[in-house]
Design a protein around this nucleic acid. Sequence first.
DNA 1: TGATCCCGCCAACGT
DNA 2: ACGTTGGCGGGATCA
Length: 844
Amino acid sequence: RGSAPDRAPLPVAQENRPAPPGTPRKQAAASPSVLAELQPGCQPLATPPKPEDGLPAEPWTPTANLKVLISAASPEIRSRERRKELSGAAGDGLQPRCCTQEHLFGDEYEKLQPSRKEKSLGLLCHKFLARYPDYPSTAENTYICLDEVAEELNVERRRIYDIVNVLESLHMVRRLAKNRYAWHGRRNLTKTLQTLKKVGEENKYTQQIQMIKKREYEHEFDLDGERNEEMPRSFVSNENSEMCFVELPGMEFRAASVNSRKDKSLRVMSQKFVMLFLVSTPQIVSLEVAAKILIGEDQLEDLDKSKFKTKIRRLYDIANVLSSLELIKKVHVTEERGRKPAFKWTGPEVLPSIQDAKLETTSATSIPHVSECIASREQCSKNLFPSSVKQNFTRHPSLIKLVKSIENDRRKIQSAPASPVKISTTGTDQNLSTYTSKMSQLAAIAQHQLEGPSKKAKGMKMKLPRSTLENNPSSPEVAPKPETHTAAPSQKSVLTQPLGVLPLSHSSVSPVILPQTHSGVSYAIYLHPSQAHTVTTYSPSFTLQPLPCANVTGIKSINSKVLNEITTKEVDNHIAEDDPPKSLISMQSESSSQRCLKRSQALQENNLIKKYRSDEESLDTSVSFFPSGYLIPLTQCTHHGNKASLSNKEKAGICLLQHSSFSSPPAGVIPVTATELKAVNIPAFHITSLNIMLSPTSIAAAAPVLSNSCLTSSNTSSAQNPNSSVLNFTVQHVGLIPAGMQVPANPVLQHVPISPKAENSNHSSENTNLQEEKVSKNIATSLTTCPPSVPKEPEEPQTTTEMFFRTPGGPNTVSTLSANSDGTDRTSQGTLYIPQRKLEVSED
DNA sequence: TGATCCCGCCAACGT
DNA sequence: ACGTTGGCGGGATCA
């Protein structure tokens, strides 16, 4: 179901309704409207500005919170329905505050009055977050009951969904079942962000952003700039379309089961939005740009205004949640044209990847953050390794059945309440108490606020011996040192890590193996079928692959050119400001190589899959599953997925398990990303096969396993010379040549080396001034201020990996590293390095 | 007036 | 058939 199709239906339906519109709807909602009327009526008069200011301004002070809570406490929502029923005087009775307020008129009145702000999603999100620890112990699982939460927070469930969806996109929660989520807090946040960053890089968001900006400029200066844009469009468009949802290993289930219509959902939007920040050099993203990118190519110029508007609305929703998480902060970017709303990333710096880090180990080591990340990854790796990609193609029926049965089994297993939900422990208890008491909530909020920043350290430490549920019970050995990996581990990996790779059997389904990107974090991407064909993406890595299609080449080259042009300009500036370490470059190349490697590993694993499957049950405890359904999972997570839905969306998902441990650094496999595939317009299977072919290591053996049919179909292509590609990777990896460059082994695929001749044209954007928005409204902000120098919890290093852990400084500590990401991009792109624009951020 | 974004209808989905 | 999710956009608020 293409995104397009999806929308069509809904919008239409709604629109139809609207026609008769306002009246009917409102009347229908009469009761609610009544409410609205009541409140508004009362408030507007008396309440206006003060209440809000007061609350928000003081936000997180206990007092303020209290006020808020109190106001919130009023049974708006619940009563709302009642009101509907009662809709009259009775309604009033239910809402004492309103009536009372009117009578009161005083400050109190104001305070009590729930102003719009008080109902804001951001505030609600804060309350929500206050209920749970940022870093819940891995040992215990905390569950969230939406109904409960909605009731306690006195909001309609609809609002909770908004919050949860965003949190889910960050893997802070995982959907277990209807109405039920597991709380992970920020435990996996780092990984998630790394993954998102990686995906963002792969999607060339940076370039897209540049394109959009460029376009804007052109429009401004001269309206005729259109023609130039053609290229960009295609370029721009491709990425979003393809990627649907990024999952972390261990967190996938919900996607599988829950994803149905969600493709473009808030979840996906949220991820993309975050990616934009992670990929942007000045980590500032304007709503406008974000909306355009999220909307995707289709709509280029003809920006559907309403669509754009809707997107903006959604972005605000997401931004509010992200703000509550303190990941972003609102600012205003002032450009020549004027001032535009934007958001600035205030979350932790995201390191490129473990792998990269490893490469740079020497240098990186010094940096706490890096080491930290690495360590965390390693630890997490058990869970994370598997990478899976969901594709557009439909799953073969037989597979579907299989999957279904598997899921059912799993469900049954899960259904059996093996582990008591949030039980016992003190921590839990506290939580419970919180639930009950609003006061506690306040306290919690305050506390939350205070500690907010600090947790990172905590999150980092993940213990191997976690409850089975939480992670794959991998043996400690699994998490070997980063540097050391050998083929040997593969076996282990199989055991320890679940691989759920499915044999891609039919032609229609082609599993795409997602390469581990340099980050080393595995993730799954869901692709939309519809887009697969249309998309054209330029990706450096792509170049390497030997694809038979002539088209590909052309496209690629074009894109690259475009990119060069676009980006080049800024590059100069940027470079001047800060030069990314060469190491970065090397890292990048490595990453790609690693990906390859991982693939190969994956392949190997695939071979083992069958075995795995047989052992599935036994493995359950330790195994993870995959979203696609191909995997069989098992673990804790409830995966109820509807196969059907899966089939629709994810046709073939391949899950590869990769252990960071396994992946030995530089293997020379060519990574193929979904994006790339699309770019090529080649059926996924082809690509898959290619990948297989390419993987130097285990290609021969693995390939067959992975894609039987696939191989056959694409064998022709396979013929290509992997060697050359391998060579390129190797070379790059070694650092002999920049990642972007390729050794022309394969004529067809030749990548055009981009020479950074910068045009030196500065974008107007440079002049951008950022003004941080006054956060008065954000409670969080004020609290946030508290320095997070919280030491991470002392952990005992269990694995060598852990040794790398260093106490994290504040999230920002590593700011210097940020360059890496940029550098990475640049290298990968061959060109882009987005200069930091001199943005002046002024806070109000 | 434009920026925000709450609200809740109702379709898609799940059971 | 009914409950859960959540896309979507009207229109109220805020600045």
